[in-house]
Computed example of a mutant assay.
Amino acid sequence: MSTEESEPELDIHREDRRRCTVLHLVGNLGGEAPTRLRDEMVPAMRGRVSPCIVLDLQGVDTADLNGIASLIAALKRLRSAGGRLMVAATPQQVLRSLEERRLDRPFDFYDDLAQALHMIESSG
């Protein structure tokens, strides 16, 4: 019997708000993350003229290159739909990985979810 533990799966909890949808990510941002994130983003974008999605990464434990790629794909998907992606509570490991590859510039990062939501409400 193997004692190897696999990386925890990514859980995504969706919270629809008046001006945006918040996706709370919990677990490992890697492996199947691109598929899971896409599957949650499509319905969140449906029916909105300028979709706004906030990714709350507070519960993310680890991230690999697939996870980083899923963030970039999410950004591209929203921008092509005329929307906005905001990233809140980004773990230092994820932020460092993006910065090292110079991929952090196109993202709107916020220290925590409250700060991102405040920005949405104050932008009128």
Rank of each mutant, 00 (worst) to 15 (best):
I12W: 04
H13Q: 15
H13W: 13
H13F: 13
R14Q: 15
R14E: 15
R14P: 10
R14G: 09
R14W: 11
R14N: 11
E15F: 12
E15R: 15
E15S: 14
E15A: 13
E15K: 13
D16C: 06
D16A: 09
R17G: 06
R17Y: 08
R17E: 09
R17A: 06
R18P: 07
R18F: 09
R18M: 08
R18Q: 13
R18T: 12
R18Y: 08
R19Y: 13
R19Q: 14
R19K: 14
R19W: 11
C20S: 09
C20V: 02
T21C: 09
T21P: 04
T21M: 05
T21R: 06
V22R: 01
V22E: 01
V22L: 00
L23W: 01
L23P: 00
L23S: 01
H24M: 09
H24E: 14
H24P: 08
L25N: 01
L25P: 05
L25D: 02
L25E: 03
L25V: 04
V26Y: 11
G27Y: 03
G27W: 03
G27R: 01
G27I: 07
G27F: 06
G27L: 05
N28G: 14
N28M: 12
N28K: 11
L29V: 05
L29Q: 04
L29G: 01
G31N: 07
G31S: 08
G31K: 03
E32S: 12
E32M: 10
E32C: 05
E32L: 10
E32R: 12
A33F: 04
A33I: 05
P34G: 07
P34D: 02
P34M: 02
P34H: 03
T35W: 13
T35H: 15
T35S: 13
T35E: 15
R36A: 11
R36K: 15
R36E: 13
R36I: 08
L37W: 05
R38E: 15
D39N: 11
D39S: 10
D39Q: 10
E40H: 10
E40N: 12
E40G: 04
E40Q: 13
E40M: 06
M41W: 07
M41Y: 04
V42E: 12
V42W: 08
V42T: 08
